[in-house]
Write a protein that binds this DNA or RNA. Structure first.
Lengths: 126, 126
DNA sequence: GACGGTGTACTAAGTGGTTAATACACTGTT
DNA sequence: AACAGTGTATTAACCACTTAGTACACCGTC
């Protein structure tokens, strides 16, 4: 567990984002336990309340499930997990399409640019 | 002149963005005059200092040029103007590619999604 | 039952950055 | 010369939001 924080976005948002990425990549699966608030805070050197805030929002989104005095677990609802991935993708697509359309970039040009950029950069591993 | 402000981003940023879009679309061309700080502020119902801040940053980026007691004008430097468009595009492309790669979406899938989304939505007019 | 672990709630403090207020210098016009 | 319009600079106020502090309730285990 290690997150590269930027100091642009709020920490708790970045924590949530981190977990969503893990889920979207399949590294975190249904039923997996995640660290306690205090443990996560300790590992990431953040305030426990910040961890709590992140967990609370994830709980409200249905990503994780917490039972009394039990470590929080990733939800068993497969649809929700698939949803995380799809939302991340949809968000990226929508934003991109909105951007290029707003300045009248033809579809063909946009596609070509993506293809080039995609192939240029190395793959992610973690 | 009319901007649909969101209350997420700072106003002065949105003002800059608006001018960049106008430039990228070719609606604002080299040498065109833009409203005075106070006039813009009046039109948009924002504080003159907010307009000033936006103009100042655009000045620093070389987008506009201001001479004493003359209305600010869009730069004559064509390269800068082309740069605006290219930066907007590059930004969109990079962000998209980073996003999809970070969750291991294959290029083909990404392309297909873009194509579909692009065709679905109506074109922009303004 | 004491202790260390868990999750949770409430409140206070801090903080960074945006926006507003105000004033100054300059120029052209009347 | 007065005035109304420019751009500019400095400082103050504001404000939303994040983060931190603290305390409480609960459960297992030793």
């Amino acid at each position: 567990m290690n997150i590269q924080f930027n100091n642009r976005d709020p920490v708790y948002i970045q924590v949530i984002q981190h977990f969503k990425l893990q889920i979207a990549k399949g590294f975190l699966e249904s039923g997996d336990v995640i660290p306690s608030r205090r443990e996560l805070a300790s590992q990431l050197k953040i305030n426990p309340n910040t961890a709590q805030r992140a967990y609370k929002e994830m709980e409200e989104e249905g990503l994780i499930k917490t039972e009394k005095n039990q470590p929080s677990k990733v939800t068993h609802d497969q649809d929700v997990l698939r949803g995380v991935r799809n939302e991340l993708i949809d968000e990226a697509v929508s934003q991109f399409v909105d951007s290029v359309k707003s300045i009248n970039v033809p579809l063909e040009d946009a596609m070509k640019l993506i293809e080039t950029h995609y192939k240029e950069k190395g793959d992610y591993n973690d």
